[in-house]
């Protein structure tokens, strides 16, 4: 089976500080990969490179065999850490925008998801809380039938009570043959959904194995391993 994402020898620097050093990762179709690591370890940079937002890296990055570009953007559904919707937009304006640019966007599904999340379709983005804006963005990107979902800290601004519901929403709505790459440091909440784990620290890959193999190898939960690796 050919890889959904194949990264070889990836390096990226901010000023002179290396953020990613010789990173090698593969993401297989139909898999859910957890990208774990402490703040500033390069998770977001890696996701932004795959999404096509960072261009001056060195190394080889392929998505379905293609360099990041217009073709790959059409098959990637990307949830950034930031809220990117226009202040004056309403949820329905955002639906129009997604319908215009993404052939795989399902407007009916988006309407159903925001209704489940209790988001008013006529409310302006500016009047929504940060958490509501993040939920709306998640509903938008999960309403696409993409090949690759890139979720950068999808639970970051979500209250603990809603996290389970959001995770279920992600699992129920992504296309079966698609891949999910989820970056998070809220390991306890998401551990159950991962097939594969990439643990990053100081710009390098520390662990890159299937979750079951990690559990057998270390005899601990993922969160315990994380605490041990990044102990201050």
């Amino acid at each position: 089976m050919s890889e959904m994402v194949a990264i070889k020898g990836l390096n990226q620097k901010y000023d002179k500080r290396p953020v990613l050093s010789d990173v090698n990762i593969s993401v297989m179709p139909g898999s859910i990969t957890g990208l774990l690591g402490p703040n500033g370890c390069g998770k977001t940079t890696l996701i932004k490179i795959i999404a096509g937002l960072i261009k001056d890296y060195t190394g080889d990055v392929k998505i379905m065999g293609l360099n990041p570009g217009v073709e790959t953007k059409a098959v990637i559904s990307y949830l950034p850490e930031k809220t990117y919707l226009k202040d004056w937009h309403r949820a329905k304006d955002a639906f129009d925008m997604f319908s215009d640019f993404y052939k795989d966007f399902d407007k009916a599904k988006a309407k159903e998801l925001i209704s489940r999340l209790q988001i008013e379709p006529n409310a302006r983005i500016v009047s929504m809380s940060k958490g509501m804006q993040e939920k709306l963005q998640l509903a938008l990107i999960m309403s696409r039938s993409a090949k690759l979902y890139l979720l950068d800290e999808p639970l970051g601004g979500i209250d603990p009570a809603t996290r389970t519901m959001i995770l279920d929403m992600i699992l129920q709505n992504y296309t079966e043959d698609a891949s999910l790459l989820i970056s998070t440091h809220l390991i306890h909440d998401v551990e159950r959904i991962f097939d594969h784990v990439v643990m990053m620290g100081f710009g390098q890959i520390i662990i890159n194995e299937p979750l079951d193999a990690i559990r057998v190898k270390y005899g601990k939960s993922l969160e315990d391993i994380f605490r041990e690796v990044f102990k201050c």
Binding site: G52, L53, V70, A74, P80, Y84, F101, Y102
Partner: peptide, 13 residues
Amino acid sequence: GAEGYLTMTLPVA
């Protein structure tokens, strides 16, 4: 700006 996260990931050149 922040909106660029959407604009620059749209499938357009």
